[in-house]
């Protein structure tokens, strides 16, 4: 490429080469380019700066930019790997990669652990689970008696917290998830298998020689 700076690089700060991204992920080069079509549309939905802000992420998830949701916030924070307050294209592809059907259950399990370890202590603590449970109940307008919430937490921790120290470590989480595989269902997006069909316009915007795809 020499000194040539592509239009894409100038318009999209942090835009990484599709071939490099494909080599780091389960995506093919064409799939990375199709994801770029999705990225362009999300990152220009509020401010056309080539980066995804939290507001744009919420808008894409809920079709409503004002909707606050602790889970969406947590996902955003995990996607924002460089902790810049925005998601660049490389972050976007690498984070979505975890949701690819071909990625190992081990990687999905680790990502889910980080997701639920809201305070980043290396443990999923009872108060974090309670906070998430209450947020879910509010979101879905379900009302549960305090005793029921405590009973659900007791049951969950009895099952998951093997050494009964009041918090779930990564080994306990791994064990718990292996006994409850449905918990990782949200970690797989079948859409990612057909991403080139969903965003066929990538073909017209491709910057990569066909040979490389």
């Amino acid at each position: 490429m020499g000194c040539f700076q592509s239009k894409v690089t100038r318009q999209y700060p942090g835009h990484e080469d599709p071939i490099t991204l494909a080599s780091q992920t389960a995506f093919s080069v064409s799939e990375v380019e199709a994801l770029f079509e999705l990225y362009k549309s999300i990152s220009s939905s509020v401010i056309d700066d080539g980066l995804i802000s939290k507001e744009e992420f919420q808008l894409a998830l809920f079709k409503n930019r004002k909707k606050e949701n602790i889970f969406a916030n947590r996902i955003f924070d995990l996607f924002d790997a460089k902790k810049k307050g925005v998601i660049d294209f490389g972050d976007f592809v690498r984070a979505l990669n975890v949701f690819h059907p071909n990625v190992s259950q081990e990687d999905k399990m680790t990502f889910a652990f980080k997701l639920y370890d809201m305070d980043g202590t290396g443990f999923i603590e009872r108060n974090e689970v309670k906070q998430m449970l209450i947020a879910l109940l509010c979101e879905s307008e379900m009302k549960l008696a305090d005793e029921t919430i405590e009973a659900i937490l007791d049951k969950t921790f009895l099952d998951a917290d093997i050494n009964q120290d009041g918090k779930i470590d990564i080994a306990e989480w791994q064990n718990f998830v292996s006994r409850n595989p449905s918990l990782l269902k949200i970690m797989t997006l079948p859409y990612l298998r057909d991403i080139t069909t969903t965003f066929p316009s990538f073909v017209f915007n491709s910057e990569v020689d066909e040979v490389a795809t």
């Binding site: 979505l96 639920y116 029921t148």
Partner: peptide, 26 residues
């Protein structure tokens, strides 16, 4: 109705905020 025997993570994983498939809906 949510039975008290339900696992907390099963409930949490039903959050709309964790369902990234909506990112792909145009």
């Amino acid at each position: 109705r949510v039975p008290a025997t339900m696992n907390a993570f099963e409930l949490i994983s039903t959050s709309q905020g964790l369902n990234l498939s909506s990112l792909f809906e145009k």
